[in-house]
């Protein structure tokens, strides 16, 4: 920084501000767009998802065999996840983004069920809304329907075991699950062409406020659900 003239500092500052402006525009870009990953990586991420999906599929099958009603309920839950991710979430930084629903889904339905529902929701998002893509479906499923929900669920279970207040556990689960999803996404993008640090920095700047907003939102959702639908929540434990 020794040789920096005032002029250079101003220019550098301008560039940084410009970049930040661009980034808030793409703050909702948690999906990896179609065609961003080379063939090898696309197949690789798809293969990584397979065991989780198989486990999730059989978990769902078992539930439906026990209670046929579960099929309709699960389908409603999947549709709910889709609609949730289409809502605009208010953000601290002023831009708008969409909630991932990762934390809420994982806490309500458990990570295994979320894998299959997440896959279907992501497929519909790719086809109907052009968020994500067909070849990047594997990578997106891994980050949003497997890695994120597992972290959320673990955080929630751990904090509940540790006798933390419900609001704190829900907030931490949703925010951390959200953040971890973005970390996985940036790793997925970063390992292909390098620049993982760049992706992580960008996501840190844009996603931490969003993760906090999503955490707060999830707490509000939980408070309302606890007040008005205790029976449904109890049913979910057995679902």
């Amino acid at each position: 920084m020794r040789h920096l003239t005032a002029n250079q500092t101003v220019r550098a500052g301008a560039v940084l501000v410009g970049l930040l402006g661009l980034l808030t525009m793409g703050a909702s870009a948690m999906h990896i767009a179609e065609g961003m990953l080379p063939v090898g990586w696309a197949i690789g991420w798809g293969a990584v998802c397979v065991p989780f999906l198989v486990a999730g599929f059989f978990a769902i099958k078992k539930k439906i065999d026990q209670a046929p009603r579960a099929k309709i309920l699960l389908a409603m839950c999947g549709a709910f996840a889709f609609v949730l991710s289409a809502l605009k979430i208010p953000s601290v930084s002023g831009s708008c983004s969409h909630p991932t629903g990762v934390g809420l889904g994982a806490i309500l339905f458990g990570p295994l069920v979320m894998t299959v529902l997440g896959l279907i929701v992501l497929l519909f998002q790719a086809l109907l809304l052009a968020h994500g893509g067909l070849t990047t479906l594997g990578a997106n499923t891994f980050s949003m329907a497997i890695a994120g929900p597992i972290v959320s669920w673990l955080v929630y279970q751990l904090l509940r075991k540790a006798k933390a207040p419900a609001a704190v556990s829900v907030f931490a689960a949703a925010a951390l699950g959200d953040l971890f999803t973005y970390v996985v996404t940036s790793v997925q993008l970063g390992v292909v062409n390098g620049g993982m640090v760049k992706f992580l920095t960008i996501f840190a700047v844009t996603q931490i406020p969003l993760a906090i907003a999503e955490g707060l939102l999830t707490v509000v959702v939980f408070n309302v659900l606890e007040k008005y639908s205790r029976t449904e929540l109890q049913e979910l434990r057995v679902l």
């Binding site: 709910f80 609609v83 949730l84 979430i89 959702v221 639908s229 449904e232």
Partner: peptide
């Protein structure tokens, strides 16, 4: 508001 909306949509879905 958004939290209320999300939870109500969930309830109605259920």
């Amino acid at each position: 508001s958004l939290g209320m909306l999300a939870s109500m949509v969930f309830l109605r879905a259920w």
